[in-house]
């Protein structure tokens, strides 16, 4: 905005730094605590461990039950990666369809899709569960993957529509003159320009599905198929209070993939949010 006086500037910085510290403190504490002994975790407020111990990670990773965290991690990737990939494909196709074609009832259908943005997920959770049960999909990752394949995350469809609308129509038209079909136009002309939108879809969906606890709780019942969200909660429930540092170490490990992805794709991600508007 406009120029500021120097004291005001310094005050702003002080505020920003204090706030950043308060915001990030819980996370820093978690990192530190993963290296503390259990006696030290709750006696002190400092972030850095006085007598660092390193056993929490390996002990936690091995787990207390039949399966360790390596299993939960692999499971989570097996659940999240196809879901994200199909979300990218379906939202691109649907976005392209709404942004670049005229067809009967287009307006009404688009309005319908927009209205589902506000449809509370809890209303359909019971019938969906019963439907998936009839199909024999319980205790598999299909209840996550198939909705992604069928464009059931209207937020991403909408985001892609908005993004395609922002690309100049001349691109399509000149390609059409060269005899390109609509699918060729999408794949070879428009897609390369969609990088930031696609990155946003990837990061958002990865984070959402990775963190999704309720659906995992409902659909996944055998421990062998648990994603980290369920594995972590089970570990917390069955462990004694002497395993604090292990649980915190595993909590830390379980949030690493989304955080790494976020920082890697940060530039595109922030752009994506700023242009289309976000939930959460």
């Amino acid at each position: 905005m406009r120029k500021r006086s120097k004291p005001a500037l310094i005050l702003s910085y002080i505020l920003l730094i204090i706030l950043a510290y308060v915001m990030i403190y819980p996370l820093l504490w978690m990192i530190g605590a993963a290296f503390k002994s259990n006696e030290e975790i709750f006696g002190t407020v400092g972030i850095l461990p006085k007598h660092p111990v390193f056993g929490a990670f390996s002990a936690g990773w091995k787990g207390t039950g039949q399966y360790g965290f390596s299993r939960y991690m692999i499971n989570t990737f097996a659940m999240v990666l196809p879901t994200v990939a199909f979300t990218v494909i379906s939202s691109t196709l649907v976005g392209y369809g709404f942004a670049r074609f005229q067809f009967p009832f287009k307006k009404a259908l688009f309005a319908l899709m927009l209205s589902t943005l506000m449809l509370p997920a809890t209303v359909i959770i019971i019938p969906r569960y019963i439907f998936f049960k009839h199909l024999g999909w319980l205790d598999s990752y299909l209840p996550f993957i198939v909705p992604a394949l069928l464009g059931c995350f209207p937020f991403f469809n909408f985001m892609m529509v908005q993004f395609f609308r922002g690309l100049p129509l001349e691109l399509d038209e000149s390609a059409k003159l060269d005899g390109c079909g609509s699918f060729r136009i999408l794949v070879s002309i428009l897609l390369p320009l969609c990088k930031s939108a696609i990155f946003s879809v990837i990061v958002f969906q990865f984070v959402w599905i990775w963190n999704d606890f309720l659906n995992a709780l409902i659909y996944i019942s055998s421990v062998a198929k648990y994603p980290v969200a369920l594995g972590l909660r089970m570990t917390m429930d069955i462990s004694t209070e002497f395993d604090w540092n292990q649980i915190l170490a595993m909590s830390l490990v379980s949030i690493l993939p989304p955080v790494v992805l976020f920082f890697a794709a940060q530039k595109y991600f922030v752009e994506g949010i700023a242009t289309t508007g976000m939930k959460n």
Partner: peptide, 19 residues
């Protein structure tokens, strides 16, 4: 901006509830 956003990527997770 990035620092303030970090909790939003993690907040819904079980890990944060445990924390």
């Amino acid at each position: 901006r990035t620092l303030y956003y970090v909790p939003s990527i993690l907040g819904g997770s079980v890990a944060i509830s445990v924390l």
